[in-house]
Amino acid sequence: MAFFLKSALTLGLPPALVTFVGLLLAWLMARQERWFLSRWLTGFAIAVGYATGHRLATGTLPLLPSSAEHWLPLSAMMAAFLGILESLPSIPRFWRWLWRLLFGIAAVTVLLLPLPSLPPTGKAIWSVGLGVLMAAVWTGLNGLAGRVTDASLPIALAITAAINSAALLIAHTATVSQLSGVLAAAMGSTCAFVLWQRRWSLAGGATGVMVTLLFGTGVNGAFYADLPIASALFLWLAPLTGWLREHPFLQAWHPIASIALQLVATTLLAAIGLSIAIWQLGRPTGGY
């Protein structure tokens, strides 16, 4: 237990702190009414926070990836950098959707390219299929982030990333599990920030980074370790439960009650993903 606690602290605290500092910078920009820059920096805060934890967990942060998981920090930074397209108000919705789709396909493709056991057609089918799903989840979360400015979305993402981490540990990859833990820490820091600074939106840059990392860890776990793809699907869809609150029935509820229901639904979906992994792979024996 002390081992896991020590790992959680040494790998979780630095990315959480870096993310928080990045969000403070974004907040300062917002105070100067530089909204465009502020939104852009929000995505960078999470990407840089994650990259810090990635370096600590894997001992490396290469610019030229040689292993599939090395693409995660690069993809996150790319999503943050290209988040400029999300932040520009003048870009029509269709073009935003197209860029998310192209980015989603590219992000999955770079992860699957080094897999020799998958034929090129298989790689193409998975890349397009998962790229479309990634773009859809991204659009869904971005829409949600634009509507809801409370802490419910980062909390939902932190819960999902934490349960994703447990599922990846069961899928026999402690490193990718730690990487999902790093994402949970960055999201936890974002929760703290949003609880402090109410009406802070993650839309326009930050959601792209989060989705890229959630899908990236899932694809790594599913294709390079033993994570069942059905597990990954539930974990990817879990943060979208915020849309439940848009239902007229729930809109009549007290906000705290509807947030609680959303988070229970997120936990439930993610727990189904985890249960599938346990059902198919068994609980880890550990201690070897």
Binding site: A68, L115, P116, H172, N220, Y224, P284
Partner: peptide, 21 residues
């Protein structure tokens, strides 16, 4: 000799045998 350890050593944590067979 320990199947769980084998899977762990073959995973991306160490040898990453699916990428580097």
């Amino acid at each position: 000799g320990v199947p769980d350890r084998d899977k762990h050593l073959k995973s991306p944590d160490f040898l990453n045998t699916k990428q580097f067979p």
